[in-house]
Every structure is written in C-alpha cells, then in structure tokens.
Amino acid sequence: MSQLTHRKNLQDTAAHIGVVILRTVLLVGFSYIILYPVILMFSKAFMAQQDVFDNSVLWIPRHFTLDNVKVAATTMQYGKSLLNSVLFALLSTLLQMLPCLMAGYAFARYDFKGSGILFAVVVLTILVPPQQFMTPLYLHLSQFDIFGLIKALNNGQALNLTATYIPYFLMSLTGFGLRNGLFIFMFRQSFRGIPRETEEAAMVDGAGPFRIFWQIMLPSSVTILVTVMLFSFVWQYNDTYYSSLLLPNVRTLPQAYELFDSAITGWNGDLSVTNMLSQYVLDDPKVLSLLRNSAIILILAPLLAVYAVAQRYFIQSIERSGLVG
C-alpha cells in the first residue's frame, strides 16, 4: 500500500517537472520573440559605425559609443520635443478624465430616459474609425463659420480654428479624444462594482449628487483612474494622428523623428546637423539603421521608464477586472 502511494507520488513529481519544463520553454520562447527587436534596438543604438561593417559583430557592440544617440538627440532637439510630447500626452490625459468619469458615473448609477440609446452612442464612438469624424471636423473648423455670422463680422473671412488649440481643447474636454469611448466604458464598469450602500448612506446624511461623486465615488476608484490615465498617456504619446491634426505648430517626438529621418536620408540644409552627421556613411542603409535605432530608443525610453515604475497598475488592473468585466 505504502509502495503504491510512493509510486503515485513519484508519478506526480515527474508530471509536475514535465509541466514546469514545458511551461518554461514556451514562455521563454514567446518572450524571446517579444524581446528580440528590443534587444536588437539597444544593441544597434550603441554600436559604432565600424562594427556594422565588421561581420564578426552581431549583437554585442565591439566599439561602444554614445555618438549615435547624441546625434539623434541634437537633430531631433530632443529636450524640447520630449517636453512637447509629454506635455501633450499629460494634458490630454488630465483634460479627458473628468468628462469620461462623469459620463461613466451617469451610465453606471442613473436610470434615466434615453440611457440605453446614449450608451449605444458610447459603443458607437468606439466602433467608428477616428478618421471618419475627424476629417470633416477638421475641414469644418478650418473654415469655421456660424450661419455666415463670422464672415459678416470678419470682413468676409471665415475663421481658421485649426491653427489654434480650440479643436484640441474641444475634443479633450468633451470626452472625444483618443479612445475615450473605451475609457467611459471602463469607468462605468468600475463604478458599477462599488456597493450602493455607501452612496445611500451619504445621501441620507444629506450629501448632494455632486458631492457623492467627488468625495465617495472618486476616492473609491483611484486604481481604475490611475490605470486609465496610464493607458491614455501611453496611447497619446505613441499616437501620431491626433497630435499632427490637433497641434499643427507643436513639434512632438514623432514629428521630430520625421525631420530626423529626412535629415539623415537627405541633407535638409541644417549646417549644425550636417557637421555631426558628416562622420557617418549615410549612403549605407545599415548605418542609417543605427541612427534610426538611436532615435527611437530616445523616443521610447520615457515610456519604458513609466512602464517599469507603474507596471503593476497596468497589469493588475486588467488582471482583476478584465478591463471591461
């Protein structure tokens, strides 16, 4: 009898070891696929030019250099562009939260006429490609006029609002920025999970709806709020479409990268840049690739830093709630 249980235990241990091995192999394999381009990016960004032509150098640079990064930083005016990008992403995130939170709260807690239809509109805003309403809106705002009133007052000229920040604030403050429909949805789901009793107690004590929202609902939703803000920040930071359409005169990192790319693929007349670039063999695609990698590392580094610090918010919140459940 004891021999039998002993054998059973051995079998279990063997099966367990098998599972662990299989799991490790699969996870390491998939991780390798994800990390491969990241590792390659880091390896190339710090590789000196001569290593590219050296066939014995594959991943680890033989001549470590910061020149690529320096050139990329100068050409992109890194400090300024980074500041613009971060400010844009941060400000958009902050502005979008209030309308999204308020809408999410109304849908979660109030049973009002038309709530079904309006919630369908939220879902619709998630499903409509941004281009579909952004393009006509842009065109309309570039020739802004209200029934001919503005033309009459402005010597027959319509206002070009796209040169101002008005469209940007309009979209952010009304909850129509990047993926805001999804945020409203997430807030609604999270508010629905908060027990009604606390609210009712506050109501009995005489708190008005706004006070309940501000002093009870918001403090209980800090985690989801931080998560949504982080997502919003990351998506805005990576986005090129909204920023190029809404902030025409501000050079964010993606636009700076485009300038950098045109500077290294063809001289654009900037002398200070060409002096630094003259050490590079710019006809060679492999050298270009070094420079591009350095530039993109510069762009992604702040994001990676944010992720490293705040990863538990990203991962745990989805893991707990299923994003929408």
Binding site: L98, P99, C100, M102, A103, Y105, A106, Y110, D111, F112, K113, S115, L118, V121, T125, V128, Q132, F133, M134, T135, P136, L137, L139, H140, L170, M171, L173, T174, G175, F176, I184, P209, F213
Partner: peptide, 28 residues
C-alpha cells in the same frame, strides 16, 4: 430630479456627441 442630475453629469460628453461626433458624422 435624478434624470436631471444624470444629464448634468453627461453634459460635457453630450456637447461632444452633438458637435464633435454627430455633426461631423452628418458632414461625412
């Protein structure tokens, strides 16, 4: 009263629905 409060909470977004979403969709 509750309906009124709901619409108050929704007001920024409703403004957006009309001017940033519905109107451009109609234009489109």
């Amino acid at each position: 009263k509750r309906s009124a409060w709901a619409y108050m909470f929704l007001s920024p977004w409703l403004f957006g629905v009309l001017f940033v979403f519905a109107f451009p969709m109609f234009l489109s």
